[in-house]
Amino acid sequence: MSALIFSLFIFVLACFIGFELISKVPPTLHTPLMSGANAISGITIVGALIVAGHSGLDSQMSQIIGFVAIVFATINVVGGFMVTDRMLEMFKKKEDEK
């Protein structure tokens, strides 16, 4: 089995899991769930690390692109998880008040 086919299997199966994971979400959770999922898509930071971390000998250009990719992806990851937590924290306070 070629690497591509193997990766395609993983991709399709992960899509099925993603479809099944989301069920009856109450409307109040729509934004936090979107925000949390968005933070997970910041996983591309792992790719950015690999691109930026290669030796400078092969291409200076790719290192610079990788650096910008790390900055972008880190904004997504750090900001995404923190802001989701902030939303859900407020959520909890509201519940307590009731």
Binding site: S7, A14, F19, I40, S41, V46
Partner: peptide
Amino acid sequence: SMAGFVIGNNLLIIAGALVGAAGLIL
């Protein structure tokens, strides 16, 4: 996920696909 295919990284492929599918359902 596509970036994961390019660099051959399973974690990117899986996490990307999860968000892609879950995001579509949401």
